[in-house]
C-alpha cells in the first residue's frame, strides 16, 4: 500500500522486537534500512533475513560520541537518511524515592538526549532534500505516567514535546516529525512481567490483549510514507484503547 522505494531509513533499537518489526515493515515497502542497535548478532541476523537493502550500524546510544557519529555513518552506508525512527529505549525502573541519579540520567540519556542528537544529525540532509520523516517511539506511560517509571515516563513525554517543537520548525521544508506511543506490546521488555502483573494489565486494556510489534510497525510505516505528508507534530497512540488520548 505504501511505497518507500528509494528512501533510506535509519532505525535505532533494531535488535529489539519492535525495532525489528519496524525495520521489516519499512524494508517490505521498498526502503533501504540502516539497522542500529547495541547487540550486533541480532542485527546481523535481521540483515541476513532481509537480504539486500539492509545495513548493520552498531551503536551504543549511551555513548555520546557514538551517537554523534551515527547519522554520518548511516548516510555513508545508504547515501542519505530520509527516514529516522528513534525506537531505541531502555528502562531502569525504581520507586521515585529510591531512584538514583544514575538511573534517572541513563534513561534520559538514551531515550531523550540520543533522540535529540540523532534528529539534529539527520536534519541537514532532509532540509536540503526538502523531504524527511522522523518518527519517535514514545510510550503510553509518557502520557499517563506509571509508578516505578518516573525516569522513563519523563523521557517519553519529553520526546513528544520535542517532536512537536521540531515539527513546527521544519514543516515548511517537507519534513514531518511525529511520535508513536505504544501501549503494552509483546516484547522482551514485557516478557519480564509476571503472569499476575500481565493479567492485571489486561484488565485495563479494552482490546483484552497486548499489542504486537507489527501493529506498532504499521503506524510507523504510515507516518513514514509520502501519503502522511500532512500529518506532523502528532502522537499516534497504539494501545488497544488503554488510554484514549
Amino acid at each position: 500500500m505504501f511505497d518507500l522505494t528509494g528512501k533510506n531509513a535509519l532505525v535505532t533499537g533494531a535488535s529489539g522486537g519492535i525495532g525489528a518489526a519496524i525495520a521489516r515493515s519499512l524494508h517490505a515497502a521498498g526502503a533501504t534500512v540502516g539497522l542500529s542497535g547495541t547487540r550486533v548478532e541480532p542485527l546481523e541476523a535481521l540483515a541476513a533475513e532481509l537480504g539486500e537493502r539492509a545495513h548493520v550500524l552498531p551503536c551504543n546510544l549511551s555513548d555520546a560520541e557514538a551517537v554523534d557519529a551515527l547519522p554520518k555513518q548511516a548516510a555513508e552506508a545508504m547515501g542519505s537518511v530520509d527516514i529516522l525512527v528513534n525506537n531505541a529505549g531502555i528502562t531502569r525502573d525504581n520507586l521515585f524515592m529510591r531512584m538514583s541519579d544514575e538511573e534517572w540520567q541513563s534513561v534520559l540519556d538514551v531515550n531523550l538526549t540520543a533522540t535529540f542528537k540523532l534528529c539534529k544529525g539527520v536534519l541537514r540532509g532532509m532540509m536540503k532534500a526538502r523531504w524527511g520523516r522522523i518518527v519517535n517511539i514514545s510510550s503510553v506511560v509518557g502520557a499517563t505516567g506509571n509508578p516505578g517509571q518516573g525516569n522513563y515516563a519523563a523521557a517519553k513525554a519529553g520526546m513528544v514535546g520535542m517532536s512537536k517543537s521540531l515539527a513546527y520548525e521544519v514543516a515548511s521544508r517537507g519534513i514531518t516529525v511525529n511520535a508513536v506511543a505504544p501501549g503494552f506490546i509483546e516484547t522482551a521488555m514485557t516478557d519480564k512481567l509476571t503472569d499476575d502483573q500481565k493479567s492485571a494489565i489486561l484488565t485495563q486494556i479494552p482490546s483484552g490483549r497486548m499489542g504486537t510489534p507489527e501493529e506498532i510497525a504499521a503506524a510507523v510505516l504510515y507516518l513514514s510514507a509520502p501519503e502522511a505528508a500532512y500529518v506532523t507534530g502528532t502522537t499516534l497512540h497504539v494501545n488497544g484503547g488503554m488510554a484514549m488520548l
Binding site: 541537514r124 532540509m127 536540503k128 520548525e169 521544519v170 515548511s172 521544508r173
Partner: peptide
C-alpha cells in the same frame, strides 16, 4: 528570509 532560511544559507 525566516530564521530557518538563515540556517540554510549558512549551510
Amino acid at each position: 528570509a525566516d530564521s530557518l532560511d538563515t540556517v540554510e544559507l549558512v549551510m
